[in-house]
Design a protein around this nucleic acid. Structure first.
Length: 539
DNA sequence: CTAGGGTTAG
């Protein structure tokens, strides 16, 4: 745009409307909406008359930056210029007003339009949907003289946005013509409403699939915690080969790799992204940092971070939390300073990383002052996660009194995470009184969580109070609690295998257990003694 | 040179 502007400014005599319009379009495409308005002012002061192409671009720019006063002025210019009846101008005005929540103003424009085509009807209906007024939207939909596929899809997605999946499906079934986007809209609706089975069924039924369809299915799996299925669908997509993955596909797959701990597939996606022209992609960069951090390869996370020319708040938060998670507290704090120097403003998530960094370094006072700074300097209202960090900070440092004081002073009820942090600290500092308080809260909050019993039982065991250990065992049996086996995941040959203690599901279990016995034997021959301090393993 | 519909990351 800077070069375009240079050339534009060198045009002798005032440029004609078409040239001005080209400049407006350029700025709008580069999201420099304010610049569009400034330039529009310049044009008017040079007495160049706008034409019918000018107003839609300028009005859209007003809407993008919520400049409604300016928008109204532009509207006046349009009316004075004789463009009151232009359907393009009318539609953009409806979008602008409705986008700012002014449906009444939007409806006024709609009502005064001379020629209302299906696009204008769609914009007005979208406006009502935006205001969550499905009744008015439906009334107009039923009144519309013409309904094309875009209008139908708009209505269907309106129902979905308001969580009315049944109404959405009914309308979808009534559609005279459906395009890929109609199918994708409903697919995403099921995905976002947690109905993975319906999502799968619809995907299989689809007459045609594009990249959005595939991303809808994988996104649905990811949102509902089905990360194996994300990986499998990604592979299926590559094998079927009709549709190529795009940046969104790669981001979803990378986040599945993070959750499953699948660095090999993660690295493969990394290479694929670089080969296929996604090198500077911010979303992919952020997902890669998280993937490497969560898969334990923090050096690679740092390399990706350093290689990124564009960084946003999420980039900084991901690397800070990743570094803190790996116990490099002082690096996390240094990055926090760098972030501020780079002009990025921290948010609540940034502080979760910083607070946990302080916790792991045992820097109680620093942590406390960061917490204060978060409130005082950044006007961030602490969430329960932040109080949890503070309780953990005090508790791990052995300041159990201060930890419990924080719990009492919190503006909300402590959750299970907080009581579990306290209970964990009580074991280290052998504080049985507080442990029992925390335990009582925990069994109220999560009566079915076996590991709370285990934690308290371990504390009793440490103190040799075996009668209490036995009592807890009975209590656990009485509540019908059975220990859920803690499972582990390992990536083998491009897929992820889940296993737990004494698991017999794997097809090669004979060979696996033979190898395990051999390893145990050689460990013993090196006089390795297993840790017998754990009385029972937690969940 | 102009108007209406989709997915993603901490």
């Amino acid at each position: 745009m800077a070069y375009a502007r240079k050339v534009f400014d060198q045009i002798p005599d005032p440029p004609n409307v078409a040239l001005w319009n080209a400049m407006f379009k350029g700025y709008a495409q580069n999201e420099s909406y304010r610049e569009v308005l400034v330039l529009f002012g310049n044009m008017k002061s040079l007495d160049v008359m706008p034409n019918c192409f000018t107003f839609p671009i300028v009005l859209k720019s007003c809407g993008k930056i919520n400049a409604y006063v300016e928008g109204q002025e532009v509207q006046c210019v349009a009316i004075k210029g004789g463009f009151r009846a232009d359907p393009f101008v009318g539609t953009t005005l409806i979008d602008m007003y409705a986008g700012g929540g002014a449906v009444i103003e939007a409806y006024k424009v709609f009502g005064e339009m001379v020629e209302r085509n299906v696009v204008a009807w769609t914009s007005m209906i979208s406006g009502y949907i935006l205001c969550r007024d499905m009744v008015s939207a439906r009334r107009l939909f039923d009144l519309a003289p013409e309904r094309d596929v875009v209008l139908w899809n708009t209505m269907v997605s309106g129902y979905i946005e308001l969580g009315e999946m049944v109404a959405a499906r009914k309308l979808f079934d009534e559609m005279p013509n459906r395009d890929v986007m109609s199918w994708n809209t409903v697919l995403n609706g099921y995905a976002n409403n947690g109905d993975v089975e319906a999502c799968e069924r619809l995907f299989e039924e689809m007459p045609e699939r594009n990249i959005f369809s595939w991303n809808g299915l994988t996104g649905g799996y990811a949102q509902n915690g089905k990360f194996f299925e994300v990986m499998e669908t990604f592979k299926r997509m590559l094998i079927e080969g009709n549709v190529l993955p795009n940046d969104v596909t790669l981001v979803i797959t990378l986040s599945a790799c993070s959750r499953l701990g699948a660095p090999d597939l993660g690295k493969w996606v990394h290479a694929y992204a670089e080969i296929n022209g996604y090198k500077g992609n911010l979303y992919i960069g952020n997902a890669l940092i998280d993937m490497y951090a969560k898969c334990g390869i923090i050096e690679n996370a740092v390399d990706v971070f350093k290689s990124m020319a564009r960084k946003d708040l999420i980039t900084w938060n991901t690397i800070i939390n990743g570094i803190a998670m790996h116990g490099h507290g002082s690096d996390a704090v240094n990055l926090f300073c760098e972030m501020k120097n780079a002009g990025e403003t921290p948010d609540g998530i940034t502080f979760i990383g910083i607070l946990s960094a302080c916790t792991h370094m045992g820097l109680v006072e620093d942590g406390f002052s960061y917490f204060q700074s978060m409130v005082d300097d950044y006007s961030i209202v602490p969430q329960i996660e932040h109080y949890g960090c503070m309780v953990d900070l005090f508790a791990r440092a052995g300041l159990l009194d201060q930890a419990i004081e924080f719990v009492r002073k919190m503006p909300m009820e402590a959750d299970a995470v907080i009581w579990a942090a306290l209970l964990g600290a009580c074991r280290i500092y052998k504080n049985i009184e507080l442990a029992e308080v925390a335990f009582d809260q925990l069994i109220k909050l999560e009566p079915k969580n076996h590991s709370n019993f285990v934690m308290l039982s371990n504390i009793y065991g440490d103190l040799g109070r075996w009668k209490d250990v036995a009592r807890l065992k009975v209590a656990m049996r009485d509540t019908g609690l059975r220990k859920l086996p803690g499972c582990s995941l390992i990536e083998v040959n491009d897929s992820v295998v889940e296993f737990y203690s004494l698991d017999e599901r794997h097809s090669e279990r004979e060979e696996i257990y033979r190898a395990l016995r051999g390893l145990t034997k050689s460990l013993r021959s090196f006089e390795y003694l297993p840790d017998l301090m754990e009385h029972e393993q937690g969940g």
